[in-house]
């Protein structure tokens, strides 16, 4: 196998990794906000439900959750799977898993906003949602950025778990090439691609942190 073939296969797999990464962020970033708010809701059953959900998502392996989501339709509801099911299952599992982690980070950020901010907004007549969107959330973003950066970088690497239900992403592609070609090169390339992509993400996060550095509390 030529190096070109190897690399183009790895980049093909990397596209799948990136698609999982991007869809997870698109789904989990907003979903996490809803979960964080529901978790702090005054409606006790809802808050409890979210607590249990977060606890399960953080307390069980993502790989197991993927298995559960992939196979539950068949084993619980008798719905036949098809080759498209696994892609759906991977993305759903990643989104609901990461939404739970994001929700806890959001919650820590929301709770760190001083009471005085809410009181000032209340006296000025802001509604609850205006207060959250205009005053609380922008400050939360700045506070949680380092923690979110950690999760986002972990997410890129976690995409390699997708093959446990048969979605071939970059790492499983690398392993398949290693097996047939009996060479370590694909691992080296894969490591390089992971690192470079995380380096890009780190740089973007650093730029964003710098942008938000115009104020401190």
């Amino acid at each position: 196998m030529t190096i070109q073939t190897m690399l183009s296969m790895l980049f093909g797999g990397f596209q799948t990794s990136l698609a999982i990464f991007a869809l997870t962020l698109v789904g989990a970033l907003p979903l996490g906000v809803l979960v964080a708010l529901a978790r702090q809701s005054r409606i006790k059953p809802l808050a409890w439900l979210m607590r249990i959900y977060i606890s399960i998502m953080r307390g069980t392996p993502l790989m197991l959750q993927m298995f559960a989501i992939y196979f539950a339709p068949y084993y619980v509801f008798g719905i036949q799977l098809n080759p498209g099911s696994k892609w759906t299952a991977v993305v759903v599992a990643f989104i609901i898993n990461y939404a739970a982690y994001f929700a806890e980070i959001y919650r820590s950020g929301i709770q760190s906003i001083p009471r005085g901010q809410y009181e000032a907004a209340e006296v000025l007549g802001y509604t609850g949602s205006q207060t959250f969107v205009r005053i609380v959330l922008p400050q939360v973003v700045k506070r949680i950025l380092p923690a979110m950066g950690n999760e986002v970088i972990t997410l890129i690497k976690d995409t390699s778990l997708a093959f446990s239900i048969g979605v071939a992403e970059m790492f499983s592609t690398a392993r398949a090439i290693v097996a047939s070609q009996v060479t370590m090169l694909p691992f080296l390339f894969a490591a390089g691609i992971y690192w470079v992509s995380n380096f890009v993400i780190e740089s973007l996060l650093a730029a964003l942190e710098h942008r938000l550095d115009y104020y401190h509390e």
Binding site: L23, V26, G27, L31, Y53, A68, I69, A72, P73, V76, F77, I79, Q80, L81, N82, P83, G84, S85, W87, T88, A89, V91, V92, I95, I96, A99
Partner: peptide, 29 residues
């Protein structure tokens, strides 16, 4: 299927996953 998936995620239920899996049969096959 991407849209269906996000919908399924929002519903948070396994039942939702079941219906999305069934509904996206055209994806990749």
């Amino acid at each position: 299927s991407a849209i269906t998936m996000l919908g399924g995620a929002a519903m948070l239920g396994l039942a939702a996953c079941g219906s999305t899996s069934g509904g996206s049969s055209s994806a990749g096959s």
